[in-house]
Each structure stands twice: as C-alpha cells, then as structure tokens.
Design a protein around this nucleic acid. Sequence first.
DNA 1: TTGTAAGCGTTATCAC
DNA 2: GTGATAACGCTTACAA
Lengths: 333, 333
Amino acid sequence: MKKMTIDQVATAAGVSKSTVSRYLNGNFQKMSDSTRERIQATIRDLNYHPNRQAQTLKTKKTGLIGVVVADMANLYSAKMISGAGKVARVHQYQLLIMDSNNSFEQEHESLRQLQDQSLEGLIIQPMSRKSTDYQEIIGELPTVFVDRVTDSNQWPFVGVDNYEATRHLGSLIAKRGYQRILIISEPIDVSQARFDRVRGVKEIARRNKIQCELLEITESVPPEIRHEIKQKIGTLTQNQEPAVIFASNSRLLMQVMQLINDLQLRIPADIGLCGFDDWHWTALTNPPIASIEQDAVGVGQAAMTTVINQLERPDQVVKDQIIASTLNVRASI
Amino acid sequence: MKKMTIDQVATAAGVSKSTVSRYLNGNFQKMSDSTRERIQATIRDLNYHPNRQAQTLKTKKTGLIGVVVADMANLYSAKMISGAGKVARVHQYQLLIMDSNNSFEQEHESLRQLQDQSLEGLIIQPMSRKSTDYQEIIGELPTVFVDRVTDSNQWPFVGVDNYEATRHLGSLIAKRGYQRILIISEPIDVSQARFDRVRGVKEIARRNKIQCELLEITESVPPEIRHEIKQKIGTLTQNQEPAVIFASNSRLLMQVMQLINDLQLRIPADIGLCGFDDWHWTALTNPPIASIEQDAVGVGQAAMTTVINQLERPDQVVKDQIIASTLNVRASI
DNA sequence: TTGTAAGCGTTATCAC
DNA sequence: GTGATAACGCTTACAA
C-alpha cells in the first residue's frame, strides 16, 4: 500500500489537483458530474487517503482534542474518557490521551508534549488545584477541567458536587443514629475534591453533634500494613457508641472493608461502613455497602460537549456543570 | 501566546532558519557555542514550539501509535492502555485511542479514521477473529493484537492463554468434587477468547466425567430479567450433586452473584461460584470468590514494547507473548 | 467548470 | 559554521 498523493490522483483522473482537492472538501457546487465520478473512481481504485499533516499545515485544524487523566487504570478516568470519546466521535474529533499516573510532574510533562501537537481543545483532570500551574501552558486553548476544581474559575468545570453529595450521606449517617464517624481519606490538601468530601461529612456531623475524626492515608503505604487504620477501628469499636467509617474513595473503601473482615467485625452491627465511588461491586458484598455513585461517563460527555461548543461557538459563555451523583443506600449503614 | 515559527526565531536570533533547525534537531557538531546559546535564549524568550505537523510532513514520523480497544469503560481495556502508555512515554510516542464500544462497525470506522492519521504503529483488541477483516486496512503497519487472537498469525499476539487458565480452574473444580458445572458466557462464536475459556473448563470436565453445560447470554438482555439463568440455577440446586457456576467474565460474574444472592442461596454450600477476571472486589465478598486474574497492564506493556521494537528494529522477528494469569483460589469453591 | 501558483512550517541538500 | 533553496502534500485565491 504505497502512499498516494493528491497529485497522483489528479494525474490518474486527468484533472488538476485543485479539482481533486475540491472533491475532497465536498465543493461539488461547480463540478461536472463526469469529473466528480471520475475522481471518485480513481480515489477508490488507488485507495487514496489524504495526508492529515499536510491538510493541517494549511488549515490549522488538527481535529485533535487532548485528554489528560489522573490515572488511566482507575475506573473514573476510564469512564470519563469513554464518555468524552462518544461525543468526540460524532463531531469527528479524535482523542489524544495522556496519563498523569497521579504525578504532578508527569502531568506537566504530558501538557508540554501536548502543547506542540496543536490541539484544538483540552480536557483535564488536574493534579493541582493551583490555576497558576496551568495558566501559561494552557494559554488560550479551549479547556475544561473535570472532577477536580481549581482555585480559579477561568476555565469551566465539570464534575460532581462533592460537598453536597457527602452532606447528603452525612444526613443518612445522622439519621441512623451514629455517634462517631471515622473519615478515611487520602491527603486532602492537594485536592479540592477530597477536601470537599471530608467537609460535607464534617459539616453534618458538627450540626448533629456527632464526633468526627479524619484519618489521612498516603497512597504509598502498602494496604497490608495499615496499622493506623486497624488501631483506629479497634478504638472505635471498643467504645459503646455506634460508629461508622466513611472511606472517601473506592480504593480506600476496598482496603477498609478488607481490614474489617480481617478483624472479624460485623457490618453494621459492630461498625457501619460507607464510601465514595460505586463501581457496583458494593452491591454484592455482605452486607451491601452504601456509597455515592458518580456518573463518570456523564462527566466526560458534558466536558467534551463543552469543549466542542467552545470550538464551534467561541462567543458563547461557558459555565460549570455539576453532574448529579447518586447515594446508593444499602444495608451497611 | 501567538504561534511562533522557525522563521521568527531565526530573525530574532539573527541567524537563518537552517541553523535554528539544526539546533532543534540537536546537530550541534558544527555550531559555535555563541550561536547555540543565542538560539536557545530566543526560543525560550519567544516561547517557541516547533509545529509537529510541519515536521511530520517532512520527516514522515508522526510519533503516533494507535490503540483500539473493545470497551474503554471496561477495566481490562483501561489497564491495557495504562500499560501501553507507560512504555510509549519513555520512547516518546503518543497514543491515539479509539473505542470500539464493543461494536464491529465502530471498530471498522475507528480503523478507517486512524488510517489517515499516519500512525507509526497499532495495538488492537479486535472485535473479529477473522484476519481478513483487518488485512487491507492495516496493511504494512506494525501491529500487535491483544487479548483476542485471530485466525491467522501474520500479526503478533499478546494476551493470556485462556484455555490454559481455565483448564487450571477446571482442575480445581474437579478436585473439589463438583459433579456439575454451569458455564455462563457471552456468545462464544465471535471471540476466540470466550471460546477458549469455555473449552478449557469443558476439557477438564470431560476428562473427569463431570457434567458440564454452557449457557450463552447475549449482552443486550438486561440483567434483571435473566430468567434463564435463574431457572438454570434452580435446576442445578434441586439436584443432589454438588454444582458450581463458572462466569466467563467479570460482568457476568457480578450478575450471577447478584442472582444467587436474590435466590438466597449459600456459596459454596448450595452452589459453588468462580469466574474470569479479577478486579479485587472478588476478595471482599462473603465468601470471597475464586477467579482468574489477568495482568492487563502487563499485556499493554508487552504489546507496546513489541510495536516499538518493530519500529526500531524492523528486521527482528516478532513473536506472540503469553502473559501469565493467576488463579486466585478463594472460599467460594 | 477547471487550472495555476503561492504558501503553510519544517527539514535537508547543497553551496559558500 | 552558516545560509539559500527546494521539497513535503495539501488548500485556496485568482485566472482562464
């Protein structure tokens, strides 16, 4: 399959390359049916495909939208991409995907690489909440931030309202009569989302005079040796007051559940359990675990729609979009 | 941030664009230190980034590798991409990702779109097992098939040995003394992987004179109304002989488990359960479920390594790679 | 209705 | 050491 050029098609069809180009771009208005058919046939025969790079060089339209996710191997990121991809497909854009691997340095490196790909738009699940980390590198590029807000509203945001969602969950906890809450989260200072999840629960706890404690866990500690959590859980259950654990993401929820099982504690008799993120396995445990389900696919769709809108109607004002999350009430609480 | 060109840099630095180009491509051999530093400074000051499309037009190197996955929202695909991305990153390639959404038509469409992006390589988790479906569209492009084999060995394959893995699982079933096996799978005729998973269990069943039945489920039927499965399970447990269910992927395993819970059956007392794919929630149920864990990240890494090898050493013979899978033995069986 | 020619931003082959 | 200059494959006025 040799690389065909527009010139070869032109020669083969006995026309000039301008005519072929017109054909390619659908400018049939003034073109005789005969030449059009001839060109069509030649293109098919020669299996010709226009060279995108050459086209782009002229038109400045790459049709490429960058997507930078925090962690590709995480279902949230994957589903978000899936949603974004569905929308991109119908608008004929392609996704250039970069994985930050939960590292700020890798994210920066990804953005630098994307920078000279002449993207037309960008969707990013940012590692930093500081907008200054993105200002120069993003520049004028139509961009949407997903999942995690930054300290500025110069770019539209699409994601769930973590504060609202966890307040909702907090109310359920209060209604169930729990007296103590242990929140287990990854470090909250680097992510507004984590911070808000904690804040929502704490707020309701405060109002209801429920004792509430936060345990921050760094990712790097292997799950097996999470003594701190075990100890906390121990203390919690020694007390007479009913206690509940809230794990602020899916991975932590898994780990906590494992520890509770190891400790042979019964849920919710000995301790209640609930979490954030719900990839449906939570419905299958015994008992099923109450948790907040995010519509990651919906987030991706909304984000991509927003980017493409910016592209097609640059004058239109864009605004943040909050995608509803669902509290799946289950027997663990 | 205006778009800078090599010409502007040249003028600003007081040299010709040839010299700037040499600088960009690291040809410092014959370049005075002074001009090199001058160019370096100007590039920094002007925040210049070379235009990839123009470079590509000359050099024919896009640095783009296409990845076509069956379903982005599926953890296998996501992890595979994650692995592929890690390898691509160190070799300075970028991923152009397409999602087939489990549809052969969409896959074909994706491949057509990728075709004129001048990819340098391709990784595909194919929807079809017929190599003729890919021959013309892939052409000479260095390609690796992952997860699912085709009926030809013209392209290297990377994935697990489904037959071997399920034989292994079959042996465990036999050792546990089960007399009846119900295999639940999506239609096996379209995917060699599905076929092999069923074949492995059946083979061991045959050898051990265990009665074995296959139930094929099409994806489109909503999980709630899976009467057929419920009925089968009912029949299975009415019988005195110990029976076990093997669900041939993660989604089916979830659904089956839900049905078993709905039917109030005890695992493994009333019925055994095991599955294929293991995203770790299987360890958290009560009882934990035995299942086969695939190293999807490893598959992606191996696939990308193979593609890049083909690119850098075209003469080298490439061969299939089987990535080991793990049988997680747990109490459900 | 179609062709000519300039130009998009690079790289690479020559000269000097 | 450095600078003209001709490609690369396409689009798009402007001519015809």
